[in-house]
Design a protein around this nucleic acid. Structure first.
Lengths: 125, 125
DNA sequence: ATATGTTACTAGTAAAAAGATAGTCACTTG
DNA sequence: CAAGTGACTATCTTTTTACTAGTAACATAT
């Protein structure tokens, strides 16, 4: 768990005169509390093309295991980024889709994807 | 090695699907190969306010341990996102700063921070 | 000159997370 | 009825992450 408290907030301005950086840093830390987890980013990215069921998501993410996908899905759902919908009926099916908050992340994801295409060349490690 | 070939880039073969999502997903996966690591995002975010030494970075990130910071720094350096500069002299000091590619990530970080501020306001759960 | 503190790390080890594999349960297809 | 799909859960094993120390060079205090 990352630090949930912020003991250094307040009067510590090392060298910046831009207050935006300050609040951004805190918000960034919050964002990375789940975006910094192994698959969360790609799962969210896979969902921008539309909602999907568990199996399709597994196909979309490609490489993730059942247990991890299940775990990440619960986590993402827990923070309200995705919505789980169960369609009752003869064959019960579950759909995962981006919530409003999750959808707001789409442009950021696109920007990140664009950046990666331009600046991040393939590394072999 | 610089790999600039993008199978999805250019106008080679327009697919029936939305090409933006396609290339974004692949690039996103690449981006999250390091952004999806625990501290990389915040370290990069801490660097946007300017370069810093090891100790100051540790103070900026707040919560990270020496070994992890050292490890992440090496990794980020390895993928060319940050630049390590050693100032020789009586007290040897090392500075870490964003590379060009790393700097290009700043607006994305800002967008992410803005998103987190709006959608991820203090949860009391 | 020795003790203490700072900066910049590296080592060793433990805890946590990720990954693989398999099993369950409902229902569908052959 | 056997096999297969979709949606998970459980149980390991491996990998990653994290924390505590410790090292080395220099600076300051005594």
């Amino acid at each position: 768990m990352v630090n949930s408290d912020h003991p250094q907030s307040g009067s510590s301005a090392p060298k910046d005169h831009d207050p935006t950086s300050q609040h951004c840093d805190a918000a960034l830390a919050r964002a990375f509390s789940f975006l910094g987890k192994r698959w969360n980013g790609v799962i969210l990215g896979s969902l921008v093309t539309g909602g999907a069921g568990f199996s399709e998501l597994k196909r979309r993410v490609e490489g993730i295991s059942d247990s991890v996908l299940s775990d990440r899905l619960s986590e993402l759902q827990g923070v309200g980024l995705i919505i789980r919908t169960v369609q009752e009926g003869p064959p019960v099916s579950v759909s995962y889709a981006l919530s409003h908050a999750g959808a707001e992340l789409i442009p950021v994801m696109s920007a990140l994807g664009a950046w990666a295409s331009v600046n991040f060349v393939a590394h072999s490690d």
